[in-house]
């Protein structure tokens, strides 16, 4: 059985990761894997999209890939 609730997909958690270092969408999705949050793939994508729109992080291209980044 998946251990849901082990990791929570919240605005605060996303903010903390992006403040620490720039991340791609894939990096973020890796932090909030469905098997760790208990969310469905669709819910993960929707919630993460809403959080990113709200946080409005800086966009940086690093090594050809778009990264999101937040200042403290």
């Amino acid at each position: 059985t998946p251990s849901s609730g082990e990791v929570q997909l919240t605005e605060e958690a996303v903010r903390r990761y992006l403040t620490r270092k720039p991340m791609t969408t894939k990096d973020l999705l890796k932090k909030f894997q469905t098997k760790r949050t208990g969310l469905s793939s669709d819910a993960t994508v929707n919630v993460l999209a809403q959080i990113l729109k709200r946080l409005n992080p800086e966009r940086k291209v690093i090594g050809d890939k778009m990264h999101f980044s937040l200042k403290e």
Partner: peptide
């Protein structure tokens, strides 16, 4: 071959399209 992670990243980027 695209993994589930790739599909989710693509979906997320599509969702953020006008934003990115």
């Amino acid at each position: 071959s695209s993994s589930e992670a790739d599909e989710m990243a693509a979906a997320l980027e599509a969702e953020l399209n006008d934003f990115m």
